[in-house]
Design a protein around this nucleic acid. Sequence first.
DNA 1: TTGTAGGCGTTATCAA
DNA 2: TTGATAACGCCTACAA
Lengths: 338, 338
Amino acid sequence: MATMRDIAAEAGVSQATVSYALHGDPSISQPTRDKVLAAAKKLDYSINVSARTLRSGRTNAIGLVLQDLHNPYSMHLADAVSRYAQSRGYQTIIQQTRYESGNEIAILQHIVGSVCDGVIFSPSRLTVKQIRSRLNGKPALLLSPIDSDHDYDTIGLACEQNMFTATSYLLSTGCRRLLFSSCDYAEFDDVKNALDTKWQRVAGFQRALLRNGITPEPWQFIADHPWTRRASRDAIIDAVRSGIEFDGVVCINDESALGVIRGLDECGLRVPDDVSVIGFDGIEEGEFFSPALTTVAVDFESFARQAVDCIIERINGDTGPVRDLIIPSRLVVRESTR
Amino acid sequence: MATMRDIAAEAGVSQATVSYALHGDPSISQPTRDKVLAAAKKLDYSINVSARTLRSGRTNAIGLVLQDLHNPYSMHLADAVSRYAQSRGYQTIIQQTRYESGNEIAILQHIVGSVCDGVIFSPSRLTVKQIRSRLNGKPALLLSPIDSDHDYDTIGLACEQNMFTATSYLLSTGCRRLLFSSCDYAEFDDVKNALDTKWQRVAGFQRALLRNGITPEPWQFIADHPWTRRASRDAIIDAVRSGIEFDGVVCINDESALGVIRGLDECGLRVPDDVSVIGFDGIEEGEFFSPALTTVAVDFESFARQAVDCIIERINGDTGPVRDLIIPSRLVVRESTR
DNA sequence: TTGTAGGCGTTATCAA
DNA sequence: TTGATAACGCCTACAA
């Protein structure tokens, strides 16, 4: 592989001149620049990222470290972020931690160590302190904040508000016996100020009920399980078989909602005629499902824009106050609700 | 950030000793090693990847460069590869080119330049020659081979065979008027030896028809369009409206099949009662769709294993003959076919 | 306008 | 068993 030294030899200039010319430094004359560029092209030069990084500390890449790549939500996120970062001149390095703290540490170290200038990170097991110590002074933007009193930037959904919106909508269509898929019951007072996105969602659900004069009760909560189609399908089937009566299901996310619809279908219940179902996320899949899924859709493009702009500003030395970015989302009414 | 030099000072040894100790070199005595390890821990040391790479040429990472991250197939691939690579001690750097040759070049250069030891690459616009010149001597494993006479490793599906299987199955259930979604018509003789996966799929479809005494005709082919739910839904709706009579649809992939089912639903046609639909890929989504999708499912875990093992062997200097890996897949009969 | 030179943090070769 | 020391390829004062 050709190095700057090779180009210098080819073009008959010094290696430093090659570096300047390649970076468009104005102090290099046009003829020299042309000579260098021609030599670079001839030798098919491409810069050694490690060397540049080692020397300058800059990689021109951002890391996107998610817990799990194996779901539509992450997929939309990864796609949107990598496209937008591209437009801002940054590469995106995507990784998944799979909820293992060992992976989280290894990936953070590897990534932050020297392959990117900043990272958008969705922690699962690591504490803020552990994260910071791996960050090596580089900027990070965290998804789903772990504590309230933090000194790092965060980005997230208005989960409580969004679930309030979703539940209120279902109530407004006449539903009265709502199920929540899938989380254990908790007292409203215990979750109304939760920071965890799961409990925020529960709180939003409950607040909407209370606002409509309905007291949340344990039977409405389908036992906690992974937010997947399979687990949700199995759980709703159990619920139906147990004889619970309900006319609507508020789901913790779209995948869950899709599983619920499938499960209801297997039980001979029709959506939305017998039961209304609403999701949360706005994954593309919901639009083409039968029935098409009513949901609170998050604006992935806005997520990407806000997140990437923020991290780039921090990379460029912005030391302004800590930011807590909120991703906008909106109710999308389709066919799974009456 | 602490460097080896800092640790050396802390532990009262030379910097070289630190390097040896940290790598478990047997020539370092136990007490010295312990001292070094303690100092490293105390200073929260983590290695500088750029420096290590610059010096050793090894990154311990593989690149996975796909055309598009925004589809379930890629998502399954990325997930499986990154998990398996992890188990082999490698990080996976995932990127998408979005079908732009500029991106392909930039990403290849960046990635291969110095962030990974080898790359699994799905080219779209770049020729083999252009790819090789960016590869910088590092091993690559290409998806969907572009020419027959190549000197690089490839991995892919047995598309022709799989489509033959899918079509044959539909025929065996009694279907006689099959549609193919979505590709333009082509003479069997022109595609039967195609290298392009799209035409291979068409060829498999046609061969199955011919084997059953049916001559493929242009009306069976729904115009070429992206392999997405939306495009396929719109196209099948047009087909129904145009008055074509058919009793089954063979789809170029699962997403397409899901769109087709949705479109048929919108036209009042029931699957599988009125029309059978079969897909190709085996994305998880198909399992939970109503009706659950019959498909030829590819074994993503096997893909990951074969691909990663191959690239790692090449990284480790294997210079054996060129390999053309085939990913196994199998017919999964569910509800969308009679 | 261009060249010289030092160093970024490692690894690896020799000596000691 | 450990310590100097020389690269790896690039960037950037500073000197010419």
